[in-house]
């Protein structure tokens, strides 16, 4: 392992592009596909994940000398699931519509490979400050990926952008802005209709696949290898001979 000191800025920013959890490391694919059919639920999921990621990274880093290595994984699991439940309760209390929209995927943040992965590979070995930055960076990268996927899916599949934003930002409920409905506006002039498949699960796979191909293209141009299924610490990956 290289002993070079990684700057805090780099710790923070690597989660955006270089080591984007969804598009480069291929972690957290379940929620990325499931809640990206609308932008509002994608953003909600992203923010919830950021919260959990930062909280767990902080706690695990702070307790890294206290948690015995033997019970490391169970301890992480307990801490992560506790944080997820806390976030769950907060979302249910203050953003109930988002809570319904995220459904079963909100508690499933617990098994999101990103969180356990960062805890095991970074937070348990670095300072609290750096761990917070790492968590934030990875979380924002996750949010960005979800945002991109959902932008495409919602706009092409439904013709709207940010539909239902009032459920995410309650202070908007006074105004009449609840997302932009481009389809209805456009339908007066053209016969263009949204391509419904994009909102369906099939569309989710497809958009994700095309985005990955794009990432591969960029990778190849830079001389880097293609993306492969990640989650080494998650152990949920291809163990067969390639």
């Amino acid at each position: 392992m290289a002993k070079t000191k990684v700057s805090p800025l780099e710790t923070f920013s690597k989660g955006f592009v270089k080591e984007n959890p969804v598009l480069r490391l291929v972690l957290g694919t379940c929620p990325a596909l499931a809640v990206s059919n609308t932008m509002v639920s994608a953003i909600g999921m992203g923010i919830a994940t950021i919260m959990v990621l930062v909280m767990t990274n902080t706690i695990i880093s702070a307790l890294k000398k206290v948690i015995p290595s033997k019970v490391r994984i169970p301890a992480y699991i307990v801490i992560i699931s506790t944080m997820v439940t806390v976030v769950q309760m907060l979302v249910k209390a203050f953003l109930p519509v988002i809570y319904d929209a995220l459904g079963v995927y909100l508690p499933l943040i617990t098994v999101n490979c990103i969180i356990l992965g960062r805890a095991e590979s970074f937070a348990s070995k670095n300072s609290v400050a750096l761990s917070i930055l790492d968590g934030l960076g990875m979380g924002i990268g996750f949010l960005a990926a979800l945002f991109s996927i959902s932008l495409i899916r919602e706009f092409v599949g439904g013709g709207t952008i940010l539909s239902g934003i009032q459920s995410l930002l309650p202070f908007l409920s006074g105004s009449s802005f609840n997302g932009v409905d481009v389809a209805s506006a456009v339908s007066q002039y053209t016969a263009l209709e949204p391509i419904k498949i994009f909102i369906l699960p099939a569309g989710g796979f497809m958009v994700f696949g095309f985005l990955m191909a794009l990432v591969n293209r960029i990778n190849h141009k830079k001389g880097k290898p293609s993306v492969e299924l990640g989650c080494g610490s998650c152990k949920a990956c291809d163990k067969e001979a390639k």
């Binding site: 796979f205 497809m206 990955m212 794009l214 591969n216 492969e228 299924l229």
Partner: peptide, 13 residues
């Protein structure tokens, strides 16, 4: 660009 993950996902779709 499509080899590996991307074409797998599109097939899944």
């Amino acid at each position: 660009s499509f080899r590996g993950m991307p074409i797998t996902l599109i097939a899944a779709s």
